[in-house]
């Protein structure tokens, strides 16, 4: 039987590589009887989803705008770039 340490390692790696058939089977068996590792798996999934959500929220948050000074700087930079060409 797989230990929690081994199971948690595979749960993390499943986010980075496809697990082999036998790894998947052993992990499934372990998760069926282990609440702690099932919660760990849920935690990692939540962590991933949270990072995605937070990103999307920020992308759609119209309160965050490119500062005017930065805008002006970018335009200046491009104009001087083109003059030097």
């Amino acid at each position: 039987m797989m230990t929690c340490k081994q199971a948690s390692k595979l749960i993390s790696q499943s986010l980075d590589r496809p697990l082999s058939w036998s790894e998947l089977m052993q992990l499934k068996l372990h998760l069926m009887i282990c609440d702690a590792c099932s919660r760990f798996k849920k935690q990692l999934n939540l962590l991933r989803v949270a990072l995605q959500n937070i990103r999307t929220n920020m992308e759609n948050n119209s309160a965050i705008t490119l500062p005017l000074a930065a805008k002006a700087r970018i335009i200046d930079q491009i104009e001087s770039d083109q003059q030097s060409q």
């Binding site: 948050n61 490119l66 970018i74």
Partner: peptide, 26 residues
């Protein structure tokens, strides 16, 4: 510009870097 800035900021987490990224993009 605002959207691009937010996109960069959401990933770089630094306002100066996000501004630079928008500039590089332009």
């Amino acid at each position: 510009g605002d959207y691009l800035y937010r996109f960069a900021l959401a990933r770089l987490k630094d306002t100066h870097q996000a501004e630079d990224a928008v500039q590089e993009t332009m």
